[in-house]
């Protein structure tokens, strides 16, 4: 592992004392070793001597109990409290555990991890299968859709992949042609419709090529693929089908609410059924 590119200087870990708590701390240690980050452990709930001792024991066990790291205990609404801490502590990356799929009711009401992902103003890593012996991310799928955040998202994904020596990085251009169907219904000739489609796709390709030219990919194996379909859904399906262990997407442009779950789009497709670990990249300059 190398830590030449510090992309996450300060990482917050949401600690919930769940059965996966140990595995999440193990993953946190790997993140710290990889990126040389400072860690902030956040627990929202009443402080009890038993839990305090247990956390100290775990941190000691994983070698995370040095003075650079910080533990914050707070009472209050878990989501709001964690969001507030992330802002005051200037966190670059929030790490939480997350179930692949929540019950329908919980999904619509919003579990803590998913609520955070919709509101947080920093990048967020949702770990669906944290491992007590983490191995990093070997196969990464990245969103390469034509959007102003994509350049930063690809840069972060590439840096993560380089740091973890990932085997392969798939950059997926999701192409939603539903708007193009509107024009087809206006009776274009076949070659005319195809010409318009090609023109749109060519523009997207050129933008992505430019981004990749400007990104230092080193020895990474990059595979650029275009998939037609609903953005968010197709990349999520691709990540599941190819057995990726990390899906990297841009943060949503606006805060998602209940209506976005009823009429899902983009990241909501991934959140409804996480295909693997999910890294939501939030550009720093947007804060």
């Amino acid at each position: 592992m190398n830590n030449e590119t510090v992309i996450f200087e300060k990482i917050a870990i949401a600690v919930a004392f769940s059965p996966r708590c140990e595995a999440i701390l193990a993953e946190a240690r790997l993140l710290q070793q990889t990126f040389g980050s400072k860690l902030v452990f956040i627990h929202v709930g009443k402080k009890s001597l038993q839990e305090e001792q247990y956390l100290k024991h775990l941190l000691h066990r994983f070698g995370l109990d040095h003075t650079l790291n910080k533990i914050i205990w707070r009472e209050g609404d878990p989501v709001e409290t964690i969001l507030e801490i992330c802002q005051t502590e200037k966190i670059d990356l929030l790490v939480t555990g997350a179930l692949e799929k929540e019950s329908l009711l919980k999904y619509f009401l919003g579990g803590i991890s998913r609520q955070l992902s919709r509101k947080v103003k920093c990048s967020m890593l949702m770990l669906t299968e944290p491992n007590i012996h983490p191995t990093g991310f070997k196969q990464i799928v990245v969103e390469g859709t034509d959007h102003h955040k994509t350049e930063n998202t690809i840069a972060v994904a590439v840096a993560v992949a380089k740091s973890y020596h990932s085997g392969k990085v798939h950059i997926i251009q999701e192409t939603d042609l539903s708007k193009l169907a509107l024009i087809r219904s206006e009776e274009l000739k076949e070659n005319e419709a195809d010409f318009r489609k090609q023109q749109l796709l060519k523009e997207e390709d050129e933008k992505l090529e430019k981004i990749l030219r400007c990104t230092d990919c080193g020895d990474l194996k990059l595979a650029v693929e275009r998939i037609e379909g609903k953005p968010g859904y197709v990349i999520s399906k691709f990540a599941r089908d190819c057995g990726a262990d990390l899906l990297v997407v841009s943060s949503p442009d606006k805060q998602m609410n209940l209506l976005d779950r009823v009429f899902p789009h983009d990241i909501e497709y991934a959140l409804s059924d996480l295909p693997c670990n999910l890294l939501i990249v939030h550009p720093k300059d947007l804060d």
Binding site: S178, K179, A181, L182, S185, K230, D253, K254, L259, D260, F263, P264, H265, D266
Partner: peptide, 16 residues
């Protein structure tokens, strides 16, 4: 029916 198929509810949500 076709006019309905052309409607994209998520696009409406996205444009804010």
């Amino acid at each position: 029916f076709v006019a309905g198929m052309e409607l994209d509810l998520s696009l409406i949500r996205q444009q804010g």
